[in-house]
Write a protein that binds this DNA or RNA. Structure first.
Lengths: 347, 347
DNA sequence: CTGTTAGCGCCTTCAT
DNA sequence: ATGAAGGCGCTAACAG
């Protein structure tokens, strides 16, 4: 009935004895440190493999003694989504300190590449790991690569720099997110025909551009009977978005759906509500905040496409820790999903 | 710029010195063990609180020495969803053994309350924690409570026994899942009117009953213009489900949507496809398997409502471990979400 | 190139 | 009711 009993608890000492060497030598091999003859290395490695030996992480942590320091480089300013990530990091404080891990917030202007790059450079040497909400720019890429070269583990958070040598990206596939938005718009408008509006913060932001790309892809290939209006840019500001959408709704009485790619959802919702067309028009936006939750519950917003900020916060910490310990990453666990949130499956 | 530096690394010894007692006494207070005068207890607790002292988990694990054993009581037989959970537990084996944790599978007939209860009874005393795919029945409830009384940590997995004293439930809110299915059916059929079909494994299964309840709730309150057909019961079998649905489709040419509450999705899909109405009818089912993934990609299935088996596997392990260590649980992390999966946001 | 040894912070007897 | 001391398994000096 019972099966799969996990290996008896071997220790370094057992391996040392079986391989006919000392503790220190096994340790050296385990961390591929120099100073061991290559045939000794092989012999030890074989013994380790033969026994499927796993060093006890708790013992390793304890012996190492030192605390590990991680820095989170996040946008300064009042972005609710980023604030949620920071809040979830705060909730982990007990967990972190019980493991002698320290997480420090470094707020900076992540939208100015030179400022961001300079900030990253100042971190060099002081941290075991850095998580950064990055901007895809050559200067930033170089700063990330410098950190990596200095031995710091680097993960990009929410916004990636794929061309850098960062160790890991914690965030969603934004093209797929845009495709998801497109498919939902197409499916939710049903038989109706009419115009589709789309507004983003800026087509210069990588994540926005990717979402727009995915959205257009699906609209063109599967819902080509729908009439897609030109992209508006609201700079992620409520007021500006509201004005743009108000004007658009006035000009086109036959708008049947609206996709907001970035922030400014409050402004868009206000424009929709004030024209009294809030519930007829299919409205899709991103991220779950107190405000989008309210809009979902009252029916103004039909779907929020979101990435789980708590998951992202914890995943970034876990990945940095695994990288620092040279432990493998559980890839399925660290894959951030594109959540489709509607009124009835709100967390 | 930098802030929130996590506490300096105090140790038990520091607390002992500051409180004017010995290491052993602090340890006793920390684990509220007897043999300490109550005012000493208070003094030590105050020192601990004043310093926000967190004992180092790695040191504690190491000193305790003993391996922790967890048992997972799962259905015998070839349920793909359960097999996924087992597979994800398997993927954790390295992680587990590096922490000297052992997870053993105990397969049993979880659908027979007396067999399940008997299995649970045999586990008593041998394990630090038990995760069980439970059946809500008085005998099972009693067996769970006995385990809890014996000091074993117990979590229910996927299927809950709310009336028991289990420490935690790892799984989704099935009423909300049913509501989500209802809302999706209502939204995806659009302006069309017609009949809605629903098939479950059995209305006797708690999770199925709850989903049906939630589904009916939404259909009645928000989509009352749609004509809901009586519930069919396919016993989660492909063949039987296929027959039932084939017959139903023949009798009602105006079916516009179909909700499969339980398993047997393969059979249902076959019936849909063979009548050639697969793509006209909105089809919603549960769980992501190789098969539902294929059906989503080819457009037969519109939405899979799912709970993440990998998350459930890891969450069960983490919760059992936290309970065993008397650590707090990160509730947001352990909350299993109702995933809405469509073609474009497949993981 | 390899081995010896002193801790890391906590838990657990065993004394007192 | 309290304290002293050894050790858990690994790391990192320091010797050879």
């Amino acid at each position: 009935m019972a099966e799969e009993t996990v290996s008896a608890a071997l220790t370094l000492k057992d391996i040392a004895r079986e391989a006919g060497v000392s503790l220190a030598t096994v340790d050296r091999v385990l961390h591929n440190r120099p100073g061991v003859r290559s045939d000794t290395v092989r012999r030890v490695q074989e013994t380790i493999a033969r026994n499927a030996f796993q060093p006890h992480v708790a013992a390793a942590e304890l012996a190492r003694g030192r605390v590990r320091r991680f820095a989170f480089v996040m946008p300064s300013g009042a972005n609710p989504f980023m604030q949620q990530i920071e809040a979830y990091l705060g909730e982990m404080s007990g967990w972190l300190s019980a493991r002698r891990l320290s997480v420090e917030m470094v707020n900076t202007d992540v939208f100015d590449p030179s400022v961001l790059a300079a900030t990253l450079e100042t971190l060099s040497g002081d941290y075991d790991g850095v998580a950064v909400v990055a901007l895809d720019h050559p200067g930033v890429r170089a700063a990330i690569n410098d950190l990596v070269d200095a031995g710091t583990k680097v993960v990009t958070l929410v916004s990636d720099v794929p061309s850098s040598r960062r160790h890991h990206y914690v965030g969603i596939d934004n093209i797929a997110a845009g495709r998801t938005a497109g498919a939902l718009v197409g499916r939710l408008v049903g038989q109706k025909s009419g115009k589709i509006a789309i507004i983003a913060g800026s087509r210069g932001l990588r994540d926005h551009a990717e979402r727009i790309f995915g959205f257009n892809q699906v609209m063109a290939s599967e819902f080509s009977h729908l009439d897609l209006l030109p992209l508006l840019e609201g700079r992620d500001e409520d007021d500006r978005s509201e004005q743009l959408i108000s004007r658009l709704l006035g000009k086109h009485p036959d708008i049947i759906a609206l996709y907001n790619v970035g922030a400014g959802t409050q402004g868009v919702a206000k424009a929709l509500t004030e024209t009294g067309r809030g519930k007829q028009i299919v409205f899709i936006a991103h991220d779950l905040t107190a405000m989008t939750r309210k809009l979902l519950l009252q029916g103004t917003l039909d779907v929020a496409i979101s990435q789980n900020p708590g998951h992202e916060a914890r995943s970034a910490v876990r990945v940095l820790l695994s990288l620092a310990r040279n432990e493998p990453i559980l890839s399925e666990q660290e894959n951030i999903r594109i959540d489709i949130l509607m009124r009835d499956n709100l967390p």
